[in-house]
């Protein structure tokens, strides 16, 4: 019965991999943030507040990356009915929502000195806000059913519909934003970004990815343990 063999193998592999990913996460984030805070130069216009970018931009990348990852996991879960794919989607959703939220908060903080307001209906921020709502819908649907399997499958279909809609939403929001206001300030200046800014950005981005891997592995593991406890409970109920 592969569905029971797999979790065992997964847990074994995860236990072996987890320490390394966790250490790598800490190292990458440590180095990345150090470089972002102390090595990278301040911006000639924005001053020190440009350092928010080193959290804001990788968070935005992660928020989008994780939604795509959920969609891939959902497709695997729907086509092959692989239980680990369901768990991966369930475990990823709150992390993605967290990164989307972090993007929104850092965007607001970063924009404050320039706009003079805590929120502007900037194209990129608005798209991120909608992505955040998509994450909330995914999480709510996942937990809306008494039968967890039902929740997995409904959320998987929603994730696939969502991933088709994300480019449409992005395009329509850009379309709308250009009508109403000038281009975004959250912009890396083309391909010629200076290495002193690029390196901290890339290293924190790698750190965020590793963080995601660590937390997803941990969350899947705890889901498996919870499932095992439920199975034991049920078995005891039947035996008595």
């Amino acid at each position: 019965m592969h569905r029971f063999a797999n979790p065992a193998r997964f847990t074994r592999i995860a236990d072996r991999v987890l320490p390394f990913v966790a250490v790598a996460t800490a190292a990458a984030l440590g180095v990345g943030f150090y470089m972002a805070l102390f090595v990278a130069p301040p911006d000639y216009q924005q001053g020190e507040s440009v350092r928010i970018m080193y959290v804001h931009v990788p968070s935005a990348w992660m928020a989008m990356f994780i939604y795509v990852a959920i969609a891939v996991a959902s497709a695997v879960a729907l086509i092959w009915r692989h239980p680990l794919a369901d768990l991966a989607a369930k475990a990823s959703s709150p992390i993605g929502a967290g990164f989307a939220f972090l993007t929104l908060v850092t965007g607001s903080l970063w924009g404050r000195p320039m706009w003079g307001t805590w929120w502007e209906w900037d194209g990129r921020l608005t798209s991120m806000l909608i992505l955040f709502f998509l994450y909330l819908g995914h999480m709510a649907l996942m937990h809306a059913f008494d039968d967890q399997q039902r929740g997995y499958r409904a959320a998987a279909i929603l994730a696939l519909v969502g991933v088709i809609n994300i480019p449409i939403i992005k395009f329509s929001v850009d379309w709308w934003a250009t009508l109403h206001q000038p281009a975004s300030v959250f912009r890396l200046d083309g391909p010629t970004i200076h290495p002193s800014m690029l390196w901290p950005l890339l290293i924190t981005a790698v750190g965020f990815k590793l963080y995601y891997v660590t937390v997803v592995l941990l969350r899947i593991k705890s889901e498996l343990i919870a499932a095992r406890l439920r199975a034991l409970d049920l078995a005891r109920l039947k035996a008595s």
Binding site: F4, R228, A235
Partner: peptide
Amino acid sequence: PPLPEMIW
């Protein structure tokens, strides 16, 4: 059986 091979 009441205790299947769920217990891995």
